[in-house]
Design a protein around this nucleic acid. Sequence first.
DNA 1: GGATGATCATGC
DNA 2: GCATGATCATCC
Length: 222
Amino acid sequence: MSDLRTLFDAASALAGQSFAELADAQGMSVPADLRRHKGWVGQLLEAALGASAGSQALQDFPELGVELKTIPLDARGRPLETTFVCTTPLLDVTGLNWEASNVRNKLQCVLWIPIDGRREIALAQRTVGTAFLWQPSAAEEAQLKADWQEHMDKIALGQVEQITAHQGEVLQLRPKAANSRVLTEAVGPGGEIIQTLPRGFYLKTGFTWAIIKRTFDLADSN
DNA sequence: GGATGATCATGC
DNA sequence: GCATGATCATCC
């Protein structure tokens, strides 16, 4: 992808296409469901748009500074899932600041691609929605920053295990691992090193719903 | 019905 | 294990 316009046009052109059509074009096969293929739709869209970062800790289109995110919507256009942003540092966090954070970097410019997330529709028949570019408004960034700071303060104080997904207005902290037996190092209550579940930052659905709602001029009811 | 905590696949 | 891509499954 040489420029943002080209990428956006390519993403826009995917609107209305079914996963079966897209998979066929990419030489991919469509799984029966997502239970054992949770990231499949994201990978399908990455392939269709030529994202190249792979498993590196980079934006999907580093040269454009753009992060690609699919977001599954229900019949009313509401997000069905929270949106994973990045994993959370749990050690040596005292010097970290929002401006240099991975969360801010990832969310600086997002190419959102709504997808049909309805489980009652066969995966192959679900379709891609209308892509749109988003950059956080000053208000949105302020919310994100406040939540990020609150979480990071607790982590720095050795209180990571007191954090639940209920905390944070728009940005929550939740486990992010293969399973609940996976452990990583963190700071404990007494400043010692403890073993704990890896965590990740996720955008709450209320936050992404507000973006979707505004973008497509949808009503709050229904 | 919706959100939380747990989980799945893959590459290095 | 940690990064990527997320949704599942169970709970309230």
